[in-house]
């Protein structure tokens, strides 16, 4: 029952995030006759990013995206595996996140998933969800990305921009 509630919660949050993303960049697009454009949700596991290869892959990928896309159409979620996080621990995580964002010049907003709503993704480690051109096109990739996955994502993003 609890699992079911969690799953519903998770789905609701995911839906809300997508709505938020659509609203953030969607008004101008709708008036221009484009209903949907690719958007990204970065699901970040800070421990995962202590792994050099994952960190480099993540960082390199972020740098390959157009700054306007990162600012307008990308959301980050910091997955926290710890349960019952107290205020002190949250402050530590916030500080680490601050350092991470600063050193990698990350400009998209990152939310901290305090309640473990995205836990179902945590087994994949740091990953990204790409919402493609059509409403039915939603894909998930894990870092480090394979070369063909990276070009697939970039192609989708850059094609749409053209």
């Amino acid at each position: 029952m609890v699992a079911k509630i969690k799953s519903i919660k998770s789905k609701m949050l995911f839906f809300l995030l997508i709505t938020l993303l659509v609203v953030r960049g969607g008004v101008a697009e709708a008036s221009a006759g484009v209903a949907y454009q690719p958007r990204l949700i970065m699901l970040i596991d800070l421990n995962d990013l202590m792994c050099f290869n994952c960190l480099m892959a993540f960082s390199r990928f972020c740098q390959s995206l157009p700054p306007s896309f990162l600012q307008e159409k990308t959301l980050g979620i910091l997955m926290v595996k710890e349960k019952n996080l107290d205020y002190h621990r949250l402050q530590i995580i916030k500080k680490k996140l601050r350092g991470f964002r600063q050193s990698h010049q990350i400009e998209f907003p990152i939310w901290i998933d305090l309640h473990g709503l995205f836990n179902s993704f945590s087994s994949r480690g740091t990953s990204l969800v790409l919402m493609g051109k059509s409403m039915a096109d939603c894909r998930c990739y894990s870092f480090p990305l394979l070369p063909h996955q990276e070009s697939e994502i970039l192609e989708e993003i850059f094609l749409e921009r053209e």
Binding site: I92, K96, F100, Q102
Partner: peptide, 9 residues
């Protein structure tokens, strides 16, 4: 400390 940016890790 938690509110400064002296040390991250």
């Amino acid at each position: 400390h938690l509110d400064d940016d002296l040390i991250y890790m």
